[in-house]
Design a protein around this nucleic acid. Structure first.
Lengths: 172, 172
DNA sequence: TATTGTTATACTCTATAACTATA
DNA sequence: TATAGTTATAGAGTATAACAATA
């Protein structure tokens, strides 16, 4: 989320749903990012690790295409994850230009712990809601997500809308 | 919100609410930012203009404190808004060190059009929901927001959690 | 000649620290 | 001397373009 500051006195629960979504969504993202630091990874790394999990042995070019970034960016990204011991680069025997990317055991471990973190995060964010309210919220959000063609796994991020800094709204 | 990539196959509407919130929240933010470009302002500018509206004549130092950024940052921010003709700097007659910030007529106009944009944005985001569903969603989100002490007007942004780039999840 | 990964370069955004003018 | 605003400097992050190895 490039997060966005939307003005809005939410005058009753009917209006201002857009602002609330943005506001609460930002909170959820922020808290999740906070939990990730315990694993030593950044939000964006999650997507990278997951892509490597799903498409084991993919090339850096392929990863760059999936991420929508340039190949040189992937070099730095993988450098970092490799230094942390989470992924490996391996020369392909079929095409020696290619580096095949794979998760190490440590990388798999991070992915596993990430799932646990997800559960704890879930509980933290919606702790104020009853089980039935959570179901309702999930259903409505899924409906909104589907209407905008958001796929279940992929986070939109800001691509395309990034013209300025993420956020500089009031802090008090 | 710096948006965050959370993994998650949402297996039924009960789990994955955290991810959905982050995902849909990011979408709402992104779309809102897109609409703002028509006004020639950036997401963060909204908070600045609103602060100047509420506290007319405030100093740049005061604004910096509210935004949680350094004074030098405010210089650049106001430079831009002044160049666009939305705000003015005026030497205080009481303390000539201070620049009092005020909105121009054009600035007021932008704020007004921002409210219209907010309505259109609202309609776009939740167009898939019925009026009653929108109310329910609003109620639940307000409950979650309140449980985390989110104030009705202020967008959290990422302050504090910003350790890395905003987002680099998969794009397909 | 085209493609993969890398390195080099430049540009943007931001924070910190000097500087000036007022107090 | 302390404070408001400004400017200067340096750092991080990212994108584009040049480069070496391989096809």
């Amino acid at each position: 989320m490039d997060d966005v500051t939307e003005p809005g006195t939410h005058r009753g629960p009917s209006g201002r749903v857009g602002f609330l979504l943005s506001q609460v969504g930002a909170l959820a993202s922020e808290r999740f990012a906070g939990r990730l630091t315990a694993l030593g990874v950044q939000p964006g790394d999650v997507g990278i690790l997951r892509l490597i999990t799903v498409e084991e042995g993919l090339s850096q070019q392929a990863l760059a295409a999936r991420l929508g970034v340039g190949p040189s960016r992937v070099v730095a990204l993988i450098d970092e994850l490799e230094k942390k011991g989470l992924v490996t680069r391996e020369r392909s025997t079929k095409d020696r230009r290619i580096h095949e990317l794979r998760l190490t055991d440590a990388g798999e471990g991070v992915m596993a712990r990430m799932r646990e973190i997800g559960s704890a995060h879930e509980e933290e964010v919606v702790h104020a809601l009853s089980a039935s309210e959570r179901r309702t919220l999930g259903t409505l959000l899924a409906k909104v997500a589907a209407s905008h063609r958001l796929t279940p796994d992929v986070h939109p991020g800001y691509r395309g809308a990034r013209t300025g800094p993420p956020e500089r709204s009031a802090g008090a």
